[in-house]
């Protein structure tokens, strides 16, 4: 029955996670960019029997709105036990290479907005000495590759940030979970050619909830990505730099 805040609540992965959480009685506060999508997600969860404490549509790249947003969520939920940060964009790597304005936007969405939000959230939870912070990062943050290093570096920075935050929060009993999905069949990857490595968002949702319940620090979803990334990380840079990845 946790009081749960979901940021980026219209993400396919977030929706599937929200279904499970609301099914078991969590009260949800949903934040997402598009008011129409947000409304349709709210209706869906409510028809399924979920309890929605409130919704707010907001572009999370506008950091100045974050304090107000947090205030509204805390009021509606009357407390905060769990936060899931799910928003993100998989920008066009080639375009980002040519135009820093685009690259900067990717870094803002995938890294800086999370830092801004987590500053508010972590201070609140540290004060309360309880809570769980779950953030969707990506396997792409484990090693820089030419095909998506703008996105990858934002997620990589996010990983380090979460690692430090976990370390800081440990003494306050606040859990910090870094979620690293591999390929997931969602709108984000609609343009990619699908293969057997692609997981369905409901499978990732189940994995996220399980990892939260088991108080994990870092989770690869599905778990075989741990093995794949272990190999990718182990390749010496001398060789790695020659690969077309």
């Amino acid at each position: 029955m946790a009081k749960t805040l979901i940021l980026g609540a219209t993400s396919a992965i977030a929706i599937e996670t929200a279904k499970i959480l609301s099914d078991r009685g969590d009260a949800l506060f949903l934040v997402a960019r598009s008011p129409e999508k947000l409304e349709s997600v709210r209706c869906d969860l409510e028809v399924r029997g979920g309890k929605i404490a409130g919704t707010l549509s907001s572009d999370l790249n506008d950091f100045s709105t974050h304090p107000g947003l947090m205030k509204k969520a805390l009021e509606a939920l009357q407390g905060l036990d769990l936060v899931l940060i799910a928003h993100g964009t998989l920008g066009d790597q080639k375009a980002c290479e040519q135009d820093f304005v685009l690259a900067e936007k990717e870094i803002r969405t995938n890294f800086l907005s999370c830092v801004s939000l987590l500053t508010l959230i972590s201070n609140k939870m540290e004060q309360e000495k309880s809570g769980t912070i779950a953030v969707i990062s990506s396997v792409a943050g484990d090693r820089g590759r030419q095909s998506n290093y703008i996105y990858g570096s934002a997620k990589g920075a996010l990983n380090l940030f979460l690692q430090g935050l976990r370390n800081r929060m440990y003494s306050s009993g606040v859990m910090v979970l870094t979620i690293k999905p591999g390929f997931v069949d969602t709108p984000m990857t609609a343009a990619l050619k699908k293969n057997f490595l692609f997981a369905k968002p409901d499978q990732i949702g189940r994995g996220i909830v399980k990892a939260i319940d088991r108080k994990k620090d870092v989770v690869y979803l599905p778990c075989f990505w741990w093995g794949i990334m272990a190999i990718i990380k182990a390749i010496p840079e001398k060789i790695f730099k020659r690969l077309k990845l």
């Binding site: 396919a12 349709s40 997600v41 209706c43 869906d44 028809v47 399924r48 709108p187």
Partner: peptide, 18 residues
């Protein structure tokens, strides 16, 4: 299949929109 959201359910009349 991705358009898979419930929209409205009137439990007393059994009217479901999705």
């Amino acid at each position: 299949r991705g358009m898979n959201r419930f929209i409205y359910f009137d439990e007393s009349q059994g009217i479901l929109r999705c």
